[in-house]
Design a protein around this nucleic acid. Structure first.
Length: 574
RNA sequence: UGGCCCCUAGUGUAACGGCAGCACGACUGACUCUGGAUCAGUUAGUCUAGGUUCAAAUCCUAGGGGGCCAGCCA
């Protein structure tokens, strides 16, 4: 009996092994490098945004990846702004990016860098390449360079300026820096191979003349390095071990390798992964910018946007976004994630943490005819059934109440568990009531009021002798706080906007519905901007900055899962 | 049309020549004073065709499908 072998150690080992094996491919590469001692056991990554727009959920994936990997392997992750194009970049974006990364929960310590920090070093390295005969000043215009480059199927032709002497190149390049030539008149090019099947290797431009004010270096420079020339070397300077980037830079890797090798400097390993695509949204910076500029949304932080600041305003938590990044994984396959995965991550997080409250979005008045007119009861309600430590609160109850219009049907279908003429329902944390009479507007026929009776023996907490199928939420009319609630739906009405027609035509005209006539329980008075609640049976809501002390504005972050809606949908399909 | 990369349940992702697994979804049931949450269960997959091998999702070849590249953008 005592001698039966204990399977636990092996099972644990297997589990451990399985867990380790489940690591995504970038992690596996890093583990291998750690084992072989490739970078002296170091892991150093970086998140390199260009400060020309706001960060979106796709960037969040990259941020979580880069900072997460560093954290996991006891390494570091830098924040570096790739600011090589002064005409597009602004300080405003730098600050927004910093806020967003910090909000997501990551810390880059004192390692906030800028590609522009390296302009002088880059310049010196460019001279070195010229001296080595690896770069030359080219007088071809932009159009001519394009013509000379060839096409996907035909090789390019060599520039007539390709074989200038080192002395002439150095002289010309220094005069470019000195500002002797107008914009676009000359470039510095790497001398590689005009016949390469990889177009990035057909003598790519390293410097262009641009008499533009840079947000950090001012008018110190009139030549600016291209991204291709700056990026790999910036990583090298910072001692980055693993340069993680998206798939479209795969074709550039041979170029970056070439630069690093010619320079003979520290050579990080570039690893490419698939960027995030989400259904019912757009993610390209250009389209996001157009959404803002053309007024399809109210701004970068409009809660319908996929930007980090918009998700924040909408009520997303950093934890939910990080959980999302974890859940979707990392691979090289170009996939599209269903936006519901993101929404579900929010629900899971908020279900555990958000206090509950009652709010009525589409009010219908009910009068409890057998409840004394001047009576008010303070009923006990649980703040979060998932977390008893969040305690309880008192909610006032009285004769006249608001309930949700959709919780009543005059002619209910089967499976409708809510209120209907002659039917009973429980008022959450209160009594079971019965609908005795329906009052209509004599002109329109619209239901204006329900006259109900309550059963005093059924107050919440009393020993229950009978059960009812449905429980609905309510707010006492006399005590209700009036509120505005903004209901959001997907910004686009199709999963892949722009696939069939201009993406603008795919905008969802019902992506925002503002309800100004809502009532919430009085405990919500003075709720802090950014506070998140679950309105029972409806969804999660977040206090918008547009709120005032007496008139809160709530954004619906996400609905609760709605089984009833699902049943309805199925019924109508039949 | 040239080059590079990719293809595993509905979706996403593991398996690194040796039993195709996990998560989410969907479906069924239990429970429930949120039609929420939770719990239990079911469902379903290696793009195709050859080859190598005792053994192929994995290696090779061909085909199919998809992505990226012809900015002095990043």
């Amino acid at each position: 009996m005592a001698d039966s072998p204990d399977p636990a150690p092996n099972a644990d080992k297997d589990k451990e092994k399985a867990k380790e094996a489940r690591a995504h491919f970038i992690e596996q590469i890093i583990r291998a490098d750690l084992e072989s001692g490739k970078y002296g056991g170091r892991v150093h990554t970086r998140f390199p945004p260009e400060p020309n727009g706001y960060l979106h959920i796709g960037h969040a994936k990259s941020i979580c990846l880069n900072f997460g990997l560093a954290e996991k392997f006891g390494g570091l992750c830098n924040l570096r702004f790739d600011d090589t194009n002064p005409v597009k970049e602004e300080q405003e974006y730098v600050e927004a990016i910093r806020d967003d990364v910090r909000w997501l929960g990551f810390d880059w310590g004192d390692r906030e860098f800028y590609a522009s920090d390296y302009f002088e070093q880059l310049y010196q390295w460019a001279e070195k390449l010229i001296r080595q005969g690896d770069a030359y000043v080219c007088d071809l215009s932009a159009e001519e360079i394009r013509e000379y480059r060839g096409t996907l199927t035909e090789p390019g032709r060599e520039s007539p300026y390709r074989n200038r002497s080192v002395e002439e190149n150095l002289d010309l390049f220094r005069r470019m820096r000195a500002g002797e030539f107008p914009d676009g008149s000359r470039t510095l090019r790497a001398k590689i191979d005009m016949a390469s099947p990889n177009l990035n290797l057909r003598d790519p431009v390293m410097y262009r003349i641009l008499h533009a004010e840079h947000h950090r270096t001012g008018d110190q420079w009139c030549i600016y390095p291209t991204y291709d020339w700056a990026h790999g070397q910036s990583d090298s300077i910072e001692g980055i071990t693993h340069s993680i980037c998206t798939l479209e830079f795969e074709n550039h890797r041979p170029l970056y390798d070439w630069f690093l090798d010619r320079l003979g400097v520290h050579h990080p390993q570039q690893i490419e992964f698939a960027r995030l695509n989400l259904t019912y949204t757009v993610m390209s910076k250009r389209r996001l910018l157009e959404l803002v500029q053309e007024g399809h949304v109210r701004g970068w932080d409009d809660p319908r946007m996929p930007t980090i600041c918009a998700l924040r305003r909408r009520g997303y938590t950093p934890e939910s976004i990080r959980a999302f990044a974890e859940r979707i994984g990392v691979a090289k396959f170009n996939s599209t994630i269903d936006i519901q995965v993101l929404e579900q991550c929010l629900r899971e997080d908020l279900n555990r943490r958000a206090p509950r409250a009652m709010g009525v979005l589409d009010p219908l008045k009910i009068v409890l005819t057998n409840y004394p007119e001047d009576r008010v009861e303070e009923l006990e309600a649980i703040n979060n059934p998932e977390d008893p430590s969040m305690g309880k609160r008192l909610v006032p109850f009285s004769r006249e109440l608001w309930i949700e219009r959709s919780d009543f049907m005059e002619d209910p279908p089967r499976k409708f568990f809510r209120l209907a003429p002659g039917r009973e329902v429980r008022l959450r944390y209160a009594y079971i009531i019965r609908c005795d009479e329906v009052v209509h507007d004599p002109k329109t026929g619209v239901v204006t009021e329900l006259r109900c009776s309550y059963d005093p023996q059924t107050r919440s907490g009393m020993p229950q002798q009978r059960k009812v199928k449905g429980t609905i939420h309510w707010v006492s009319c006399a005590h209700a706080l009036s509120a505005e609630v903004r209901l959001y739906d997907h910004l686009f009405r199709v999963p892949d906007p722009g696939a069939e027609r201009d993406w603008r035509e795919d905008l969802n005209p019902q992506s925002e519905e503002v309800r100004t006539n809502c009532f919430v329980e009085p405990s919500l008075r003075g709720a802090d901007v950014g506070a998140r609640y679950q309105f029972e049976r409806l969804g999660y809501f977040c206090v918008d900055p547009d709120s005032t002390a007496d008139h809160p504005v709530f954004n619906r972050s996400v609905t609760l899962r709605d089984t009833w809606a699902k049943i309805q949908k199925k019924e109508t399909r039949k």
